[in-house]
Design a protein around this nucleic acid. Structure first.
Lengths: 218, 218
DNA sequence: GATTGTGAATTATTTCACAGCT
DNA sequence: AGCTGTGAAATAATTCACAATC
């Protein structure tokens, strides 16, 4: 089994989305070229990405759409649901709580916590917000597997440390700050400020007449 | 002027945040090593990143914090405010409207649009939501420079096309789909589903005993 | 003595190109 | 004939290592 880069994993998600669409349209086979075109990649890249996990295509024909969807779903661990908890029920947290797509895609938010007394006890989208102090116990008892951290920058690292100590091994962080996690814990960041700044750079660099990469990391 | 990769630009944002913090604490000089440690990079990388834009350090001493902050702010185009509009006032869009940090960081959302009749006319966080049909004209008249697209996947490309035709050259897309923009238009994506799937992959791969990159793209 | 700036070396990622199936 | 799977080649990103400078 080869080592797999983060960009490869990101592309697999994209491929899966496209394959699922086509599958529901009744398409049965798809070539690496077609898939690449839709995904904004090259045919060779599609094949290399897949080749890290096995050989799924039929030479001369392409890939069986339904089968490959299944394989990708399995590789990405999307055949099951993951129990997700939310820490921090501010504006972003609340919006995520209401975002039904997460549930549909296999990431139901089953618990939510906040340090703000006035928020505790409120029920939102089927989840009752509980006190921050109850977090550790609940994460363990409810077998939470992924935690979404949407707390202010100042407390983000501290909250992550507590989450990690509770045995959670996957964290999605929305706080715009560098978070440290021990090896064996997966961390992903969503940093909107960073993306806006990259746009600001592109606009400024453009005006200065410098060429820049119009980034398309999906 | 060397070409600058997207990851370099992302790191510049991180450096700037750290430098600003230290600056407010009264720190005057900082070495590439210190900065790297805080940023989760290497000293050489910090120096390489900066060297693409000029030479700002003093050998034997490090970098003057205040000066370098200023330089980075200038490089990233953060010395000015950018006029931002929001298209799509659903859960995510509304949350972004209320997110005061954007305003504070120089990205005030000055206009918002939605196709939903019932939302039009509502005032939220100082911005009145207007009809989708008014978008093109408003983007031009109000000299909007960055548009945040938070509409459903099905209409995202279409909305982006309209935005681009209105002369906007920077787009932050929240719809989890591949968006095409012409050269000269900067596009950044925030795709929470993708990040969750990467976490799912990491958890699954971990269980399978495969090593994986616990990605820390900030 | 410490730290920068930067070519050279290394490592990672992407693309090429073609033998091998269907 | 068409398309995959994959080594080899090309390109990109990162790290090394050291002369230059403060």
């Amino acid at each position: 089994m080869k080592k797999v880069s983060e960009s490869t994993v990101a592309r697999l998600s994209v491929y899966l989305r496209l394959l699922s669409e086509r599958e529901s349209e009744g398409v049965e086979m798809m070539s690496s070229g077609e898939l690449a075109k839709l995904a904004g990649a090259t045919a060779a890249q599609v094949r290399k990405d897949l080749s890290a996990f096995g050989t799924f295509g039929k030479r001369g024909l392409g890939y069986p759409v339904a089968e490959l969807s299944g394989v990708l779903r399995s590789i990405l661990g999307l055949e099951r649901h993951w129990r997700v908890a939310l820490v921090g029920a501010g504006r972003i947290g609340m919006a995520l709580l209401g975002y039904q797509d997460f549930r549909r895609q296999g990431f139901p938010i089953v618990s939510a916590f906040d340090a703000d007394r006035t928020k505790v006890g409120q029920r939102r989208h089927g989840v009752t917000i509980r006190a921050d102090a109850e977090m550790e116990r609940a994460l363990v008892e409810e077998a939470i597997e992924i935690v979404i951290v949407a707390v202010p920058v100042e407390v983000a690292q501290e909250v992550v440390d507590r989450v990690v100590r509770s045995g959670v091994r996957a964290i999605l962080n929305f706080a715009p700050t560098k978070i440290e996690v021990p090896a064996g814990v997966a961390l992903k960041n969503v940093n909107m400020a960073l993306e806006l700044e990259a746009l600001s750079y592109a606009l400024s660099a453009g005006r200065r007449g410098r060429r820049w990469a119009a980034g398309a990391r999906a």
